[in-house]
Computed example of a mutant assay.
Amino acid sequence: MSPLITAAELRAATGLVVLDATWNLMGPPGREAYDAGHVPGAYFVDLDTELAGPPGAGGRHPLPSASVVEALLRRTGIDGDSAVVVYDAANSMAAARARFVLRYFGVENVRVLDGGLAAWKAAGGEVSAEVPADAKGEFVTAGGSLQVLDAEGAAEIASTGVLLDARAPERFAGEVEPMDKVAGHIPGAVNAPTTGNVAEDGRFLPADELRERFAKLGADGSQPVAAYCGSGVTAAHEALALEIAGVDAPVYVGSWSEWITDPERPVATGRD
């Protein structure tokens, strides 16, 4: 089954749990956009507090605790048999993070609405300001359902395979760094800005185009592939694009914001 669902498919489906993961790195809070209008019946999930743990030694967006995710799943009524759809109001960066976290904690059937809220509206979908009542689910989380990397694992992939850096070229090169205290990238990493995975309308490129894009970077599945970014959000989007292309790629969750917490770890700059 595709990790994506179209707006038309969502409109025709029944019995799905829909989550709105709208989030803005620089603000305003995603909750404001959700309150203004969302897919009817969708529950809001907060990336900073429900899809990530507190920032610190593990980076700006480490994995949340099992108890936090369990509470999220129970209030939205998700159980082991649920079919879940996640979306956001941009180009699926936050939605991909939501899918990644839910699957890591044991929810198997999670798909991303391709094109997000804009695609929903374009397909004739209505929006609602009504907030659904909390459910009373009984899901018990099981962390570790997806492979993830730590700093040591990311460094190994960078030297033996293809470690894709999903950030913008200028951040990869160390020319600018708006979020973290140190600029640059993990030595050996290859820049593959995740914005290149989607078209202007926010929908993912077709699988064959994504496959071609990643193959040109050496990420054709013939050697180990992994993804990282600034804090583990856009890396999940990169991993989703790779999955669409048929390439398995674990995420270095701590990403650059964790890498630089150890001054002994090397830092590279430049676009090569």
Rank of each mutant, 00 (worst) to 15 (best):
A268C: 07
L25F: 12
S159G: 14
W120M: 11
A96Q: 08
L63K: 01
M93G: 05
L25N: 03
L10E: 11
E9H: 04
G59C: 10
S2I: 01
L16M: 15
L146R: 06
D150H: 05
V84G: 08
A192M: 00
A235T: 04
L240I: 01
A249K: 03
L113M: 03
S67V: 11
P29H: 09
G137Q: 13
E258H: 07
L242A: 08
A249Q: 01
A42V: 01
L72T: 15
E70S: 11
I260D: 14
V162E: 13
P132L: 10
S231H: 06
R103P: 06
D248E: 15
A158M: 08
L73M: 14
Y34V: 10
V69D: 14
T6A: 13
Q147V: 12
A7L: 06
L117K: 09
P55D: 09
P64S: 09
D88S: 04
V85T: 02
R97I: 11
E170N: 12
E258V: 04
V86A: 10
V198P: 01
A98F: 03
G41D: 11
V225R: 03
G161R: 04
R31P: 10
A66G: 15
L25W: 09
A94Y: 07
I244A: 02
A173P: 12
A268W: 02
V247M: 02
L73S: 13
W120C: 14
A219T: 08
D79C: 03
L210G: 10
E258N: 10
F105G: 07
Y104I: 00
E212Q: 14
A166E: 14
V107M: 09
W259V: 10
V251L: 06
A142N: 05
F44T: 00
V85R: 04
G254V: 07
P62L: 09
Q147I: 06
D201Q: 01
V45S: 02
E200Q: 03
A119Q: 12
R103H: 05
S255D: 11
G184L: 03
G30I: 05
E130C: 02
E156R: 12
S145F: 02
D248V: 07
A7Q: 08
E9S: 14
N109T: 02
A173E: 13
R11K: 15
R265E: 11
A142T: 13
G15L: 05
D48W: 03
G230S: 09
A142L: 10
V233Q: 04
W256D: 13
P29N: 11
T234G: 12
E50K: 01
E170K: 03
A96H: 07
A21T: 01
S222W: 05
Y87Q: 06
V127R: 12
L19M: 02
G196V: 00
P250K: 03
S2M: 09
E108K: 11
D262K: 00
Y43I: 01
G15K: 03
E264N: 12
V131G: 07
K181M: 12
V112Y: 11
P40W: 05
V251G: 13
A135D: 14
D180Q: 05
I157M: 09
D48Q: 05
L117P: 10
G230E: 12
V127H: 07
D88P: 07
G153P: 06
N109M: 02
A158I: 08
E170H: 05
F214E: 11
A235Q: 07
F172N: 05
S145I: 00
V131W: 08
V131Y: 11
S222F: 05
V17L: 05
V162Q: 07
A189F: 00
